[in-house]
Simulated assay, not measured.
Amino acid sequence: MFSILLGFLDAPMLDYLSDFCKKCGPISVSCASTKEEWFALYEQHEFDCFFFGFEDDIVNVRSVIYNLRSNEHHQHTPIILFSTKIEYLITAFVHWRSCECFLLPFDNEKKEALSSLLHYYEGMYEKMHFTNQKFCQINTPKGIYNLPCNEILYVESTMKKSIVHLKKEAIHVPYPLYQVRRLIPGKNFVQTHRSFIVNLDNISYVDKSKEPWGIFFFDSDKEAFVSRSHKKTLPPFFQGIDDDEMNLD
C-alpha cells in the first residue's frame, strides 16, 4: 500500500491532511507530532512520500529534507511542503526543486490539485507493484530487445537514432523517435519535447524553475526535458506553477 509520513505540522493540519489522504484511495498514513517521533517512524518503516509543514521550524525541516535527499533510496521520493508563507515556499522552490509546494489555506483548486497528485502517486505505486508486466520489443541488427515498459524512463532522439533510457541502463536503437513510439504500447508515453518521449508512470517531479523544464524519475538521476510547446502534454498536477507565478511582484 502506498504510504505517507506526515510531520512538522500543527495538530489541526496534521488531522486534516491525514483524513484527506485516506479519502484519496488505499493510502497508509503515519503522523508524527514531534521531531523525535518523526525519526522513530522513519527508522521503523518504509515510506513512499513525505508531507512537511514549512512554517516556524524551517531549520529542522531543511535538515530533514537534506538528509532524505542524501539517502540514495530517497533521492527522488515525493516531498510535499505546506506553508502559509509564500516566501518560505519560494525558497523551497529554488533550493529543493524536487518538492511540490502548497500555499495555505486550502481552496477548492488546491484541494483538487493535491487530490490529483495523490491519485497519481497511488496509481503509479499500484502499477509498479501489482500490474501485469507489459513489454516493448525492439528489433535491431545487434539483436532483439524485450524491454519491460515500466522500466523505461524516456526515449531520447539523437542523430536520427534513439536512446531508450531505462532505470539501470540505456539502449541505443537505429530508429528515429517516432518509430520507437509506435513500438511502445499504452498511452502513458507522451512526447514532451521534439527530442524526448517520457513515461508518465515513472515521473517523480518536474523542475519548473528553468527553461526547458526538467523531468526527473524515481530511483534514477537521469533527466528529460519539457519544451514550452509541449507543457500541456503533462498531467495538470505536474504543470503546477512556474517562475512567473512564483514572482512576489
Rank of each mutant, 00 (worst) to 15 (best):
Q44C: 00
Q44M: 01
D243L: 12
L147F: 11
E211C: 03
A32R: 00
V190Q: 06
P105W: 05
S220Y: 02
R97F: 05
P78L: 07
I152Q: 06
T84E: 14
E245K: 14
Y178P: 09
V198F: 02
C31K: 10
H45F: 01
K232Y: 04
K167R: 14
W38P: 00
L103S: 04
E37H: 08
L234N: 13
V59C: 04
I152R: 12
L103C: 11
Y120L: 09
E245N: 09
A170R: 15
M124P: 00
L234S: 09
K231V: 13
T192G: 02
I163L: 15
K187I: 12
Y175Q: 13
R228Q: 14
K23G: 08
E43G: 02
Q239H: 10
F50P: 00
Y154A: 13
Y125S: 05
H119Y: 04
A11I: 13
D201I: 09
L234A: 04
A113E: 13
Y42F: 13
M124C: 15
I203H: 05
F2S: 02
V206C: 07
R181Y: 07
D242G: 15
F237R: 08
C136S: 15
N202A: 11
Q75T: 12
D207V: 02
H129L: 10
L118H: 00
E169L: 12
K187H: 13
I215W: 04
A11F: 10
F130A: 13
Y42Q: 08
S63W: 00
M13Y: 09
L5V: 03
S157C: 10
H165V: 15
F102T: 05
F238C: 04
P236A: 14
K134F: 09
C49S: 04
H172A: 13
F51R: 07
F82Q: 06
T131A: 15
I138Q: 10
G186W: 00
I138A: 07
I90W: 13
V59R: 10
H129A: 02
E46Q: 11
